[in-house]
Design a protein around this nucleic acid. Structure first.
Lengths: 187, 187
DNA sequence: CGATTCATGTAACGGGTTACATGATTCG
DNA sequence: CGAATCATGTAACCCGTTACATGAATCG
């Protein structure tokens, strides 16, 4: 995720409610883990940057004897920036290329039996994530826009599983053809 | 795309045929444009690195009065590395998060009418890419593993289009509700 | 003749991740 | 009491992209 979308995300969350960095990171990990991989350090850094740009305002707060924390609030300039970033995001399309494509393109370079086992591992990983997404789905208001995003991610995983089945079918055919000479062709 | 997958990709191509950098870049742009966004400079750099590691061997060649070019060939060490990388790739899953999800999650923050227009732009971009992918599909041997990768990318785009339709439907509902007070809820 | 293609690089930049540091606090 | 949580940062590092440079060759 690039700087712009990190800013969009953080501004969007701060628009709902002022928060401190830790709180934001918690929220990200709890509710948006499957949509973004924004790391705590990066979030803190982005918040500082935005504070320097005047997009957010920080004010220190002490709760009991806990470490001082910076409460961030979006500024009017931040609101404007937020709109800009949101418009840009909605009007664009990021193709989001998968590393999986590269491996599969060279699938014929491994013995089919070995390939099958490796793909089984991949399948398990996808299934695992999908299960977590399905669980998360229950915790999101079905009428909210966030639900739409989650829905996309869910379908993405379902698609990958379906597609993987076809890859496996392709492998089966390759395995069957192994009996007779003449192996699978290349790019 | 990270270093490992770049290496996997380049090694896989060099395994088929020895090539010079420019030739590789041409091939990438012509045949694998939709699957990877490996830039020329990065490809050259990766090749040098792999040469230093002994994964590939370069030897200079002069064709006519053209600039000298480095022909790269995969080495036995490279073959071993290739297998490793391929295994790792096949057994793993990279979730490939989309920036689109972030924007959509905040969809309710824009006037529905404006959002609709922006999403129309997004749709056009996806459709455009899909058309190019469909055209590219005809040029790929349907029995090859590369075809499987392309198939995934194609479905990815189709999914995004379908999903976008649902987002639009959601917007229509929001627009309809605009008449009566009570706006769309937030994450 | 001017523009594009061939073919390779380099230098600089910003960007993001990892790993680590800190220090108090609450929980088991 | 030791471990995890709260809360924030920093420093180092690699990494990838952009932009630019070069210089001959061919195409229109």
């Amino acid at each position: 995720m690039d700087l712009q979308n990190r800013q969009l995300l953080l501004l969007g969350l701060l628009r709902i409610q002022t928060m401190h960095g830790y709180q934001l990171n918690q929220f990200l990990e709890e509710h948006l883990d499957f949509m973004t991989s924004l790391k705590p350090s990066t979030a803190y850094y982005t918040l500082e940057r935005m504070a320097a740009e005047g997009l957010v305002e920080a004010h220190a707060e002490q709760a009991g004897n806990r470490p001082t924390r910076q409460i961030y609030a979006i500024t009017p300039a931040g609101e404007i920036r937020y709109r800009e970033l949101l418009r840009r995001n909605l009007a664009s399309y990021d193709p989001c290329e998968s590393a999986d494509d590269i491996g599969i393109a060279f699938l014929a370079d491994l013995p089919p039996e070995e390939a099958r086992q490796l793909l089984a591992e991949k399948r398990a990983l996808i299934q695992d994530r999908l299960d977590k997404i399905l669980a998360a789905e229950d915790r999101v208001d079905a009428a909210s826009a966030t639900h739409l995003s989650l829905e996309r991610v869910k379908r993405q995983h379902q698609l990958d599983l379906e597609w993987l089945s076809e890859v496996e079918a392709w492998l089966e055919r390759a395995l069957a053809q192994e009996a007779e000479p003449g192996s699978a062709p290349e790019p």
